[in-house]
Amino acid sequence: MRTEPILEIKGLRTVFRVRGREIAAVNGIDLVVHAGETVALVGESGSGKSVTSLSVMRLLARGIGAIDAGEMLFRGKDGTVRDLAALGEEEMRRIRGNDIGMVFQEPMTSLNPVYSIGDQISESLRVHRGTGRSTALEAAVALLDKVGIPDARRRAGQYPHELSGGMRQRATIAMALACDPTLLIADEPTTALDVTIQAQILDLLQGLQRERGMGVLFVTHNLGVVAEIADRVAVMYAGRIVECGPVAEVFRNPRHPYTLGLLNSMPRLGAASAMKRAGEKLNAIPGMVPSLADMPAGCAFAPRCGFAIEACRQNIPALESVAAGHGSRCIRWQEIAR
């Protein structure tokens, strides 16, 4: 694995203006994605994981969401490093779909229903590289073949509604990879898919990444998917990264009560019968995620946390280093263990 960072997010803060009030959906996060590695951003609804990926792509709804602070240093294909937070729309447009590929959750909404699959994939080649129409279409057919769509030439002439959900997601992946990006941002790319199709898509993404050495920022709510696909993981809660580190290390040895709670609340295949016999229950995390408009003082997780003490409600804990490359935003991390 190479070690040069493709994306380096420093102190990113993204705010939304809602009824005259300013709400921070992402509140000071640091994150690095290196070439050839997959970094998973995991969290529940409202944790800020998708807002982080939208911030990197600069796709926040204008006038509503805005980057308030921080930098996002991105190394493009030509090797130059630029701060995405400071770029104008024109420059961003040259980067999106060219240096940064994007795959979203719902392939039916990210594809245009009135253009053929082949047209949509070749569009980015025509726009970013000035490739001629017929050459671009040939490239699109090759890409469709590459992402495992059988009978690629015929499929290229079809429209999104003629493809299954899994095939559509393969097509959006082909679209994202058309210009050979250095960074792929995949936001819940398998969430809308059936589990046997999800397995196919994860396998495809892993293969393509290994082959091309892209950095991948993978946004998901599914810890199983994280364990499957990522090298490193950042767990988000209420707009902050509460724990980060290598996946095997974080999952084996979680040092934040929220990560621990998430891992414990997941139903595990084949584990329930023994639990039922023993009269045990799933370890749910009590309460719910606080509203971003009404955040508790101190640690945002404290109201739901079994480890919380008075000090947790005073100050927002810093991200402390607990091991090499492993950080936890909990003042009691030394007492947290699986």
Partner: peptide, 19 residues
């Protein structure tokens, strides 16, 4: 096909082909 949250448990997964 269900992804396991145990990174150690990366067993040989059987991926079904097709739709």
């Amino acid at each position: 096909a269900i992804p396991s949250p145990d990174p150690e448990a990366k067993r040989g997964r059987e991926i079904l082909k097709g739709d």
